[in-house]
């Protein structure tokens, strides 16, 4: 029996909840793993080493950093789950110094809660695998956990949302309706779910790790009449500054 721990840093909690939302497939997971720590599901907690650690949320406080370090030190394989953990998500897209932000929101520059500028966990520790998405696709996590239990390393998605959009035969809203769609820049795996409803992809899974062309997409969006500011805001919503041109 392998061991598993789930760790939550700063985020909306949805990515931890998404594990519980595996529903009956969660029983498959507990057939293969003993869950030693999973705060959202149970107050039960056991110290010691883990085969797999799942970490959701971004590092936004000193406490987050401590939890993350503990998860890393105690685990053999660490998976970043969700866009907060993989790319920093919207909280990391806020610019400016910590003092300015504290002043603006709390009216004081004193940092009582040990807040840090939000960053994805990949900026602090080595991550063995990443499953982006806001929230991530829960079957992707299921596949990764079963593979790891069988001693096989999961494989990264190397394709953008466009590929799954075409596999489903969805009309291309960028080409046919001039709707800004970040599908060409965004790593696939969500089965192009937003395009099923004809809504342009807003890039919630973060940019493809390699070969992505933000300047090329910006050129297209400008031709459609969107200005630099609009495009910059759209790019940075989830990517934590990962998309620039």
């Amino acid at each position: 029996m392998r061991t598993l721990g789930v760790f939550e840093l700063t985020g909306c909690g949805g990515c931890a909840l998404n594990i519980i939302f595996l529903y009956n497939k969660l029983f498959d997971v507990i057939q293969l793993y003993k869950i030693k720590e999973f705060h959202m599901a149970s107050s039960y907690r056991e110290e010691g080493s883990l085969d797999v650690a799942l970490v959701s949320g971004s590092v936004s406080t000193q406490r987050d950093l401590e939890i993350l370090r503990r998860a890393r030190e105690n685990s053999r394989f660490l998976i970043a789950i969700g866009t907060c953990a993989t790319h920093g998500n919207m909280q990391s897209s806020l610019e400016g110094s910590m003092e300015e932000k504290l002043e603006r929101i709390y009216g004081t520059r004193d940092n009582y809660m040990g807040a840090l500028n939000s960053k994805p966990i990949v900026e602090y520790v080595k991550v063995d695998f990443a499953i982006p998405g806001c929230p991530y696709d829960k079957d992707e996590l299921y596949q990764a956990l079963i593979l790891l239990a069988k001693g096989v390393e999961p494989v990264y998605k190397d394709y953008p949302v466009c590929v799954e959009c075409k596999l489903n035969e969805y009309e291309c809203v960028l080409v046919k309706r001039g709707i800004p769609c970040l599908g060409p820049l965004t790593v696939g795996g969500c089965n192009a779910i937003c395009l099923r409803s004809g809504i342009g992809c807003i890039g919630c899974r973060g940019p493809l790790p390699k070969g992505v062309n933000p300047a090329g997409e910006a050129r297209i969006l400008k031709e459609l009449g969107y200005d630099d500011e609009y495009i910059r805001n759209k790019y940075k919503t989830f990517s934590g500054g990962g998309l620039k041109w």
Binding site: Y159, P160, C162, V163, K166, L167, C172, G183, P184, L185, G211, V212, N213, A215, G216, E217, R219, I220
Partner: peptide, 13 residues
């Protein structure tokens, strides 16, 4: 190389 997004749509269709 600068214009292309590498999105693969041309292959998919």
């Amino acid at each position: 190389e600068e214009l292309c997004l590498g999105c693969g749509n041309c292959n998919m269709v």
